[in-house]
């Protein structure tokens, strides 16, 4: 019974993720229309065979824009987590493995960052760098470092005094070798689960920032930016906001279903 439900989650998650990936790949190869092409006669046109998702306020094909918007969102989530994970592992590994004064200072700093709402910190960083796609990646990447550092650190503390680590020390293995060739592979599972959650958070955070107008800037498209544009035409073209929101929900749902089933397999 339980096993059955687990599989359901995995399958639905995989299907949704597959659809999103398909959408992004199709957009990479060829979108139905050029995503920036405006057509005055098609302003806020409804759903039709030629435009399966309708057109936006400038008469641009929404499906084509969703394709590149989903890609931008996905790319931002990817780079953000890559930055967060890289520095998170570096900091978490060093502090967790060696401990001591340095660890104490860095972890207090980490606590401060964590007690701060992440979007607020991203806002401060955006104020420093100005809005834009790359700036969002960097700002969010920095914001994501502390949570990864904390997870990696606690895992390293758990492993650093294990017998196999001591055995490698006796065999003359260097600290760096132990940290990255022996302990890190054991932490992989934990990192993977938190990575999926991180992806989700990144999608949400990007959407919120673009929605506020400090993220991706027009005429570029991202799901959050499109939603914020669509909100203004909620009465005249409700399908615009609803469809873009639906794509975003599918993206987030697929990650959370995958992370759930992954956790159930692990635990």
């Amino acid at each position: 019974m339980n096993n059955n439900r687990k599989n359901h989650k995995l399958y639905i998650g995989l299907i949704l993720a597959g659809l999103i990936v398909l959408l992004i790949l199709a957009g990479l190869i060829r979108s139905p229309y050029p995503p920036q092409k405006m057509e005055a006669s098609l302003k806020l046109a409804g759903i039709s065979a030629a435009h399966p998702m309708g057109c936006d306020q400038f008469g641009r094909d929404i499906l084509s824009r969703v394709m590149i918007g989903a890609r931008t969102t996905f790319l931002i989530a990817f780079v953000t987590n890559a930055i967060g994970l890289f520095f998170g592992i570096l900091i978490g590994a060093l502090t967790g493995y060696f401990g001591g004064f340095f660890d104490e200072i860095l972890m207090r700093f980490n606590d401060v960052m964590l007690s701060f709402p992440s979007i607020l910190l991203a806002l401060v960083l955006i104020a420093l760098m100005g809005p834009g796609t790359y700036q969002v990646m960097i700002a969010m990447g920095i914001v994501f470092i502390p949570s990864y550092a904390r997870i990696v650190r606690s895992e390293f503390i758990r492993f650093r005094n294990m017998d196999y680590v001591l055995a490698i020390r006796l065999m003359g293995g260097s600290h760096l070798r132990i940290m990255f060739l022996h302990i890190l592979p054991n932490v992989k599972g934990t990192i993977l689960t938190s990575l999926i959650i991180g992806f989700n958070n990144a999608v949400l955070c990007e959407a919120a920032m673009s929605f506020l107008g400090i993220g991706v800037q027009p005429p570029d498209a991202s799901l959050g930016l499109m939603l914020s544009e669509a909100q203004g035409f909620l009465f005249r073209a409700p399908s615009y906001a609803l469809l873009v929101g639906f794509v975003m929900i599918c993206m987030i749902l697929s990650f959370s279903l995958l992370s759930d089933s992954l956790k159930e397999v692990q635990g």
Partner: peptide, 28 residues
């Protein structure tokens, strides 16, 4: 599972649409 996946501002948009624009329960 579904509600956890909806970004808060999209719920806001949905509420505005359903209860504000369609059912006229409040003025957006």
């Amino acid at each position: 599972q579904l509600f956890m996946a909806i970004p808060p501002f999209f719920i806001g948009i949905l509420i505005t649409y359903l209860f504000g624009l369609l059912m006229h329960l409040f003025t957006p």
